[in-house]
Design a protein around this nucleic acid. Structure first.
Lengths: 182, 182
DNA sequence: CTTGAAATCTCCGAACA
DNA sequence: TGTTCGGAGATTTCAAG
């Protein structure tokens, strides 16, 4: 009936800041109330393994971390509940689905136009990731299009927000697992 | 014994160009031998669904695309075999694992030092993605560190390759599924 | 956390439209 | 290509220890 593992949905185009509380007390809280338990070595191993293959079973992971399957499953559920694992995704090769053009756009806009920019991003399917950066009110946009004509349309659209400079991505080098500290 | 779904491994820090043939005939091939069958609407739906939840079962997906489980499984296997689906991964929240600093570095180096740069990238765990860009021999680097001290070390290391400018990522807006064309 | 059993769930293959 | 129907196997869940 339902998936083997409960889905962890994530809305598209939602700023991380929306997940944080807006009202913050001015008095410092002494022990810094980390709302998530600290991860131990086994948690980090599990996360590394799941980043490399998001469909491994608890038993398979258990063999790699010397833990029983129920123990692993319990940890994974806890990591999902805490939001450490935000979800699972299939990694699709853009070039294989007709998205031959990969580009990044650096956008320089004013503070006042940021809400307008976010609204515009929402209606740009070709935009897969937008970074809000320090320095000169800048956005960095990740764009995938099937052809240069579509890219041109995107560039023109984004350019209305301010000065934008576009670069094509010639090659991509990726490292799967994050460098989990401690 | 083994995973329900065969893992599709992907080595860390491997350029996409390494997957392409190096020897290319100079004579044009007339029909443009796309080595992968064109995707139909159902394939695209399946890919979109699997990008949103990489652990859904064939039966679950079948309900969404009005197809039987064996038909869906066969399509997914074909997509994996063709390399359209490169793998599956758990999405981990960097801030939740102690990676509080997210930065991008624009690196300007010379053509001759590109191999050196790639070798250096290989030994930088904090570097999760490197884009080779058009214009001024540029790389765009995605960096995650637990603190500013580590970021400084990364910036200094990368800076040896050429002029580098670093920006902090203040917020991230992401759209999960790629905009599959056609 | 571990073990062990039960209950699902998942994929696979055969027969067929 | 597709569907339906079983069966074999794997996975999670839940019980105790």
């Amino acid at each position: 009936m339902h998936a083997r593992v409960p889905s962890i949905g994530r809305a598209a185009i939602v700023p991380d800041s929306a997940h944080r509380d807006t009202a913050v007390p001015m008095i410092p809280k002494q022990p810094a109330p980390d709302r998530t338990d600290p991860l131990d070595d086994i948690d980090r191993k599990i996360l590394t393994i799941l980043q490399q293959d998001g469909r491994l079973s608890g038993a398979d992971i258990g063999r790699q971390v010397n833990l029983s399957q129920p123990a692993v499953s319990a940890r994974i559920q806890r990591l999902e509940r805490q939001g450490v694992i935000k979800g699972y995704t299939a990694v699709v090769d853009p070039t294989q689905v007709g998205l031959t053009i990969h580009a990044v756009i650096r956008l320089r806009t004013t503070h006042a136009r940021i809400p307008e920019a976010l609204a515009l991003f929402r209606d740009l399917p070709e935009l897969t990731t937008a970074y809000r950066l320090t320095g000169e009110d800048c956005f960095l946009l990740d764009i995938h299009t099937p052809d240069t004509a579509t890219l041109q349309r995107v560039v023109d659209t984004v350019g209305r927000l301010g000065p934008a400079s576009t670069s094509l991505v010639l090659d991509t080098y990726e490292r799967k697992p994050l460098p989990l500290p401690q």
